[in-house]
Amino acid sequence: MAAADIRAALSRPHRHGTHSSFVGETCDGPLDLSGLTLSGVDFSGAIFPEGLDARGATFEGLSWFSRVTFGADARFAGATFASDARFEDAAFAGSADFEGTDFRGIARFDRARVSGDLRMRGITCNGNLSFEAARIAGAADLSQAEFMGGLWLQDVGFPAGTAFADTQIHGRLWLRGGHVGNRVLRPADFDMAYGYAWT
C-alpha cells in the first residue's frame, strides 16, 4: 500500500471507538507522519521496509504496532500517544527512537527486538510500561524518564551500560529474570522507585 494513502487515511478526524486498519500491509515507500494528528490505527503485522517517521505526531486513538517489522529506523521522538500503544513482538531493524514521547495509556514492548539503539530518554508513561522478554542489541537510554504506572522488566535483556539516571518509577518495579549486560537488574539501578520492587 502506498505511503501517501496510509497518511491520508490517518489524517481524517478521529472518532472515538473507530480506527483505520492496515493489518498485514506492506508500506510502499517511507511513511512520514511527523507532526500530524492521527486517528486510531491498527498496524498489526504490517511491514515498513523503509521505516517510519512519526516525530511530534499525536496518536488520538488506540495504536497497535504489534508484530510490526520496521526495516529501517522508527522515529517517534516527541510523539504523543493519547491512549494505549502496543508494540509487542515488533522487530526494529534500525533504531527505535522514542525520546521525549508521552505515553498517556500503557506502552507494551513485550518480546520486541531492537537491532539498533533504543532511545527513551525523557519519556513519560501514565500507565504501565512493559518490556517483558524484549531484547536490545544496540545502546539503550531510559534516563530522565517517569513511569507513573510502574515498570515491568520480566526477562528483559538490556545491553551493558543502559542509562537509567534520574528515572522515576511510581508503582510496581518488576525485575525478575531481567538483565543488563550479563548481570541481573537491581532496584539500585534506578535512582527513584517509590513502590515495591520484585526481583
Rank of each mutant, 00 (worst) to 15 (best):
M1F: 04
A2E: 11
A3Q: 01
A3V: 08
A4L: 04
A8H: 13
A8N: 07
A8C: 06
P13M: 10
P13H: 13
P13E: 15
P13K: 12
H14I: 00
R15G: 00
R15Q: 11
H16L: 10
H16K: 08
G17R: 08
T18Q: 13
S20L: 00
V23R: 15
G24H: 04
D28S: 12
D28K: 10
D28P: 00
P30Q: 14
L33E: 01
S34L: 04
L38V: 09
G40C: 05
V41F: 03
V41L: 05
A46H: 00
F48K: 10
D53M: 00
G56F: 05
A57P: 08
T58W: 13
E60L: 12
S63H: 04
S63D: 02
W64Q: 10
W64R: 03
W64D: 05
W64A: 04
S66C: 08
R67W: 02
V68W: 00
G71M: 01
G71N: 01
G71Q: 09
A74S: 09
F76A: 10
A77W: 00
A77G: 13
G78L: 06
A82E: 13
A85I: 06
E88H: 14
D89E: 15
A90D: 01
S95A: 12
G100R: 01
G100I: 02
D102A: 12
F103H: 06
R104Q: 11
R104F: 03
R104A: 14
I106K: 10
A107Q: 07
R108I: 12
R108V: 09
R108G: 07
R113Q: 10
V114I: 15
D117C: 04
L118G: 05
L118P: 04
R119P: 02
M120V: 12
G122T: 01
I123R: 06
C125E: 04
N126Q: 14
G127V: 02
N128S: 09
S130V: 03
E132I: 11
A133D: 15
A133F: 08
A134V: 01
I136Q: 05
G138C: 11
A139K: 10
S143R: 02
S143P: 02
S143E: 08
E146A: 09
L151G: 03
D155K: 12
V156L: 06
V156G: 01
V156Y: 04
G157W: 02
F164L: 13
A165Q: 14
D166N: 07
I169N: 02
H170I: 15
L173I: 04
R176I: 11
H179W: 12
V180H: 02
N182I: 06
N182W: 12
R183W: 08
V184E: 10
R186Q: 14
A188R: 06
M192N: 15
A193H: 14
G195K: 02
A197L: 01
A197E: 01
T199Q: 15
